[in-house]
Design a protein around this nucleic acid. Structure first.
Lengths: 140, 140
DNA sequence: GTAGCTGCAAATCGTTTGCCGATCA
DNA sequence: TGATCGGCAAACGATTTGCAGCTAC
């Protein structure tokens, strides 16, 4: 069960001028249950407003990302995929057969990572963790 | 202390036709102590043989990668970077200020990842872990 | 009113590819 | 010899940008 994030409200809170196009992009992002790429997003956007150009989609995604409203993920083998920025950080497990993404978070893992960085003489400022797997017992 | 890998020997072992150009690319990769990108590699290659084109560099890197002789890493913010494939897997800590890469490996971490995948109903087939940090006590 | 937006088409960037003469085994 | 290679320049695909007109506030 994914927590719905009101992207438009976040934009307004940041004082962004809200155009019709941005509202549509925000709506599509808010409603996405998956982690769509630009092409998928554009397709969904055009279902609502046929005239919105790909340039606007790119511009808007960059804008939202810089504002911290959006996360861009560069998983292996594929174009960047997007999700509305969650309030609690999580990591991703990607199904290598279907591309489906499962979210998870594990405090133990983060502790361990901090320890490793520390041991190497660094302060951990960020990390990227992606698991790639195949579903167990896929057939009946 | 980085273990030197004889890339040319690995190519020969795989039965690749070894041209003058491939020997140069192999040599540069074997001698690299860092994780250079294509541009850096091409620069080093040209120091040995001025005539080798960027197309050849790209073709050769792809060839080596497909043969499992080379690893391509797509760290955040930047072009892909390469290293001769190590025989024991390791992960990377990237200095966000300098781009320098420190290698590490932690069996505990891998166990934990396997457990997480398992808990989510997946068999772990691969993963990507990158730590981003700043050096502690950088100044004297 | 004016700063900032959008659509369009052209530009950009890193990377790949078709062609054809050259090289390797 | 026959398969494979490499250099060149053109092609490519995803993304960005300049411009001129339009919109939010």
């Amino acid at each position: 069960m994914r927590k719905r994030i009101d992207v438009e409200a976040l934009c307004v809170a940041k004082g962004m001028p809200m155009t019709e196009q941005r509202r549509v992009v925000a709506k599509v992002l808010s409603e996405a249950e998956d982690h769509p790429d630009v092409e998928a997003l554009h397709a969904r956007i055009r279902e609502i407003d046929r005239g919105i150009s790909i340039a606007t989609v790119y511009r808007t995604l960059r804008l939202f990302e810089k504002a911290g409203i959006l996360e861009r993920h560069e998983f292996r083998h594929g174009r960047p995929r997007y999700e509305a920025a969650p309030d609690v950080r999580h990591d991703h497990l990607i199904d290598v057969e279907t591309g489906a993404v499962t979210e998870f978070s594990d405090p133990e893992l983060e502790t361990l990572q901090k320890q490793i960085a520390d041991r190497l003489g660094y302060n951990l400022v960020d990390y990227r963790l992606e698991l790639y797997g195949t579903k167990r017992d896929r057939k009946p």
